[in-house]
Structures are given as C-alpha cells and as structure tokens.
Amino acid sequence: MVPFLDLKAQYAGIESEVLEAVRRSLASAQHVLGSEVAAFEEEFARYTGARFGVGVNSGTSALHLALLAAGVGPGDEVVTVSSTFVATVAAIDYVGARPVFVDVDPATLTMDVSKIPAAITNHTKAILPVHLHGHPADLDPVLDIAKKNKLHVIEDAAQAHGAEYKGRRVGSIGDLGCFSFYPGKNLGAYGEGGMVVTNNEELAHTVRMLRDWGQERKYHHDLKGFNYRMEGIQGAILRVKLRHLDGWTDARRRHASRYNALLDGLNLARPIELDWARHVYHVYAVRIAQRDRLQEMLQSQGIQTAIHYPIPVHLQKAYRDFGYSNGDLPVTEAAAKQLLSLPMYPELTEQQVKMVCEAVSSFNETTSEKAKPV
C-alpha cells in the first residue's frame, strides 16, 4: 500500500525531539501563548523573511485577522480565487466583505493577474492571491496593481511554507501573509495552528491584539477581539518541526522530480515550476480527463490519492449568495474536474514513487483520451 500521507512515519523520525519539547512546554505551565509560542513566532518570521510573526489557532483565523487588520469590513470587496480551500473565502465573509473571484492561470492554477484590473471597483479593499499546492502566485503584477489602486495584498500561503517567488519566501512579500499549521501541511502542528507574518509593525500589533480579545493589557479591551491564541504545546512542537522543514522540502522536490521523469510522455498534465518560482509541492496534482477512473484504479491497487478541490468555492451551495454560476470561471471549473493528487510526503521511498507511476502508466495505456487543455 502507498498512503497519500504518512504522518506516523514523520513522527517516528523526530519522536525524541518532540517528546522533549512537549515535556518542556508542560513543565513551563504556559499552556496558552507563552515563551514557546513567542520563540516560534520569531523563528518562523525569520524563516519567511518577515519582521514579525503572530501565532494563532488556525490558518483560517490568520486570514480572518489579517483582513481585519487591513481594515476590510462590511461593504468592501476582496479580489481572490475560487480554486482554493473554502477557508480563503470564508474569512472574507467573516468580516462582512464580498469575494470577487477571478479565474486562474491554466499553467499554475494560481491567480490570473490579467483578470485583476477588470475585477477592481470602488469597493475593492484588498487582493488575496493563493499560493496553490505550494507554487507561488505571480506577485509582482499583483503588487503593482495594488499600489496603483491603494489596496492591501494579503497572501494565502497556507500551502506554501518555504516556497519562493523570485528568491523571496512567500508570505513576507505582500502586506500580510497567512499560514496554516494544520497537521497535513508541509509544516504541521499536532492539532490546529496558524500564523500571520508581516513587515509592518502596526499591522502586527493589531493582529496580536485581535487574537487575544483585543487587549494590550489584561482586562483592557481596546478592540473587539477573538480567542484565537496559539497553544504553548503547539508552539513547542512547531519549533522542533521547523528545524526539519528545509530537509523535508528537499525530499518533496526530489519526489516531484522523480514523478516528472517517470510520468513524462503520458496523456496527462504534470504540475509545473516556473522559472521565477520555488515550488514546495504540498500537493503533487496531475490533470487527466479520466480522473475518477484513474483514482478508482489506483485505489484498487492500494495507492491512495486525493482530490483538491472537486467543487470550486464559487459553486458551493453555502456561497450561492455571492451570485456566481457554472461557466463564470472556466479554467477553475475545468481543473476541478481533472485534478488528482498523488501521494506526496517527505518519507515516500523511490520504490513507492515508482509503483505509483507504473500504475498510472498502466492506466494510461488503456485509454487514449488525453487531459483536455483549458
């Protein structure tokens, strides 16, 4: 069997370090925020190249607070994409704003920057690109458009820990960057966690207050805040795992290179890495017209796969009130029907990658239908 993700294998390699960190955290009795979280905030901000990091209880909370800190609220609009996890859009809804969707680039499936100008209105307050699957969005044009229109840029980097855009790590490039430490992420907690990073001291200060009931001092609530604090034990665990992240990323990139080589020439589209990008392969997703049949065949051979995401956010029942329908985002909609995520985690073996590719190749030989371009 080849699992889609094997967190047990990862834990086995760092068990002694994690247990020591947990013991240290428990002994400190600093169970919410505290010194371990503060140290992790500093270390992760430095890792991304940002001046400040604010730890929160989830990636969704990071997005929510980043939007609030940027002044986004009722009546405002945020330009974003539908090819993402629902949390990106939910956070916009939380602050009372309206998402304005633009389609994605067919190659990277990140925001199609050529579509942004037409989406901007007098109500636009921010642009929220998503670094999907670990490949950065094209940020320079986004930043240029934002500057001309006096908009904030908030990066959704939940899937892109350590990814680089033109030599700079994502998250630190826009006004605010939002990360998730959900267990399955490239850098995952043993529970929930998230962080906002920024180079703006005032924005960092606002996020720091908002995550802790809007207070600077205990019982002095200057803002209407939230209980979005990171737990001390997660900060301690994430400090351990951060030390291994670059090695894990190198392994992911080796697996992706191996996949690319072994799947070359088949009737499917492989993920790409543009010249200006460093892809960290949170997901290795191929595109193929017979996606569902391929998934069933792989499952029958003990190979687990996943689909990210079968229904774009703009077509989800919960978000019909935003007024979008089938056909509005053709590239996004076509990709949602074709993407299949193959096993990808650092502890994969070469033999496992080969097994997956041989199974995909065998399926490919049984069908002549190619992945349709979009």
Rank of each mutant, 00 (worst) to 15 (best):
Q10P: 02
Y11W: 14
E17I: 07
L19E: 15
A21Q: 05
V22E: 08
R23G: 00
A27C: 10
G34V: 08
F40W: 12
A50E: 07
V56A: 02
S58D: 03
G59K: 05
L63D: 00
G71T: 01
T88I: 05
R98G: 02
V100P: 03
T108R: 00
L109P: 00
T110D: 01
M111A: 04
M111R: 05
K115M: 08
P117Y: 04
I120S: 01
H123C: 00
H123I: 00
H133Y: 10
H135N: 07
P136R: 01
Y165A: 10
G167V: 12
R168F: 06
R168K: 15
P183S: 12
P183R: 11
E192M: 14
E192P: 04
T198F: 12
T206M: 09
V207E: 06
R211K: 15
Q215M: 09
H220D: 11
R229M: 13
Q234T: 07
A236P: 08
L238N: 09
L245T: 04
G247I: 00
R253T: 05
A256F: 03
G265F: 01
N267C: 15
A277M: 14
H279D: 11
V283P: 01
A285G: 03
R287T: 11
I288Y: 06
R291K: 14
Q304N: 04
T305P: 10
H308V: 01
I311L: 03
Q316L: 15
N326W: 13
T332A: 10
T332Y: 11
E333W: 11
A335T: 07
S341A: 15
L342F: 10
Q351T: 14
N364I: 10
S368W: 11
E369I: 10
V374G: 11
